[in-house]
């Protein structure tokens, strides 16, 4: 049974169709990179997985729970799926540690000690123990994004979603975030990653999904994607971003 399964997902903003008949799946422990030109719907696609973006047709299940079913307790499902955003989205009024503790306390009902302990473990893992008492705006972008990853992991998620996690970063900070993500993948985390980092895709991904104009145009193994099996649009996209 795949961890994430989408079948024939369609989504419209009024008359404009942003997702067209999207079907794919992510197995447990699999790392899937989603790429494509801007406006292709990849960010929207990943946000439908935990129900941040509603969709009108099709089904999405995560760990066999239907996301689109009105009877589903979405907050409860979301608590089991970590998500990392392009702009980090740490809460500015809370310290780094408070950011990591918040959902552990209020959603998982862990004690303050438990949450702080788990928080410290994860800060250690992303190399930011000494920043625990600082506030988000006092950290660099790369550091903030590593905190955001730690914040997601603190919930002990069954899968992690990354929505362009390095797009807002200065070049020299991209690697520190990708390193954390690579380590996470090596630990067997199920990951769906929207990114333009083709180096990361080449090294870490098991599969690559290429989207264009709301459609999943390619959905194949990494080797096929970077080999010759890809279609014309993907070819064109790759040649553009690999030679920029």
């Amino acid at each position: 049974m795949p961890m994430i399964e989408m079948s024939s997902v369609n989504k419209w903003y009024d008359d404009f169709q942003v997702l067209k008949d999207c079907s794919t799946q992510v197995a447990k422990g699999e790392v899937v990179v989603v790429c494509g030109p801007s406006g292709s719907g990849k960010s929207t696609l990943i946000k439908t997985v935990n129900g941040l973006e509603p969709f009108q047709e099709g089904t999405i299940t995560v760990d066999e729970i239907s996301v689109g079913d009105p009877a589903t307790d979405l907050p409860r499902l979301r608590a089991r799926i970590g998500m990392v955003f392009q702009n980090f989205e740490l809460f500015p009024h809370l310290s780094i540690m408070e950011n990591i503790k918040l959902a552990q306390l209020k959603v998982l009902n862990r004690t303050d000690d438990e949450s702080a302990k788990r928080g410290m473990e994860l800060l250690d893992r992303v190399g930011l123990v000494d920043q625990a008492d600082k506030f988000p705006a006092q950290l660099s972008g790369g550091q903030q994004q590593r905190v955001a990853i730690a914040r997601g992991l603190a919930m002990d998620p069954i899968a992690m979603l990354f929505d362009e996690p390095t797009s807002a970063l200065d070049p020299e900070m991209i690697n520190e975030v990708l390193d954390v993500m690579t380590a996470l993948a090596e630990d067997g985390m199920t990951m769906m990653v929207v990114t333009h980092e083709m180096g990361f895709a080449r090294r870490v991904a098991h599969r690559v999904i290429f989207m264009d104009e709301g459609r999943i145009e390619e959905d194949c193994t990494k080797d096929d994607f970077f080999g010759t099996a890809r279609g014309e649009r993907a070819q064109e996209f790759l040649s553009k971003i690999l030679t920029h």
Binding site: K47, N50, L52, P75, R76, R78, A79, R80, I81, G82, M83, F85, Q86, N87, E89, L90, F91, L102, A103, K106, V107, A148, R151, G152, M155
Partner: peptide, 20 residues
């Protein structure tokens, strides 16, 4: 994005307002 981040970690709507 802040709202999304709060929702994504499983906070319920009232909690999103209360804490963020």
């Amino acid at each position: 994005g802040q709202r999304y981040a709060a929702m994504a970690m499983g906070l319920r709507p009232v909690q999103v307002y209360r804490y963020i």
